[in-house]
């Protein structure tokens, strides 16, 4: 299994590609909506991309909705992977 750091790098790489974002701007404190210009319509695509790329299932949508920054997203993905690899 890849480390959490590698996972985060991969998440950045995939999101940059799929959402045409500049990886340089995807610093931990950057907000998805204001800084990166994503909007609520992108949220579903984000779930689809995460699920397809990492084979995880995003079920906790309340947690998903509370994500504001790149760092929130990384913590969310790390937690999800830990939960689902345990299951």
């Amino acid at each position: 299994m890849i480390t959490d750091d590698e996972l985060c790098r991969k998440v950045i790489e995939v999101l940059a590609q799929e959402f045409e974002l500049d990886p340089e701007e995807m610093v931990p404190e950057a907000t998805l909506y204001d800084d990166l210009g994503l909007d609520s319509l992108d949220a579903v695509d984000m779930v689809v991309v995460l699920e397809k790329t990492f084979g995880m299932k995003v079920t906790d949508e309340a947690a998903l909705r509370s994500i504001r920054t790149v760092d929130d997203l990384m913590q969310f993905v790390i937690r999800l992977r830990a939960e689902q690899s345990r299951a």
Partner: peptide
Amino acid sequence: FRPAYRKR
């Protein structure tokens, strides 16, 4: 469209 949406 962003690639993610187009693909979807």
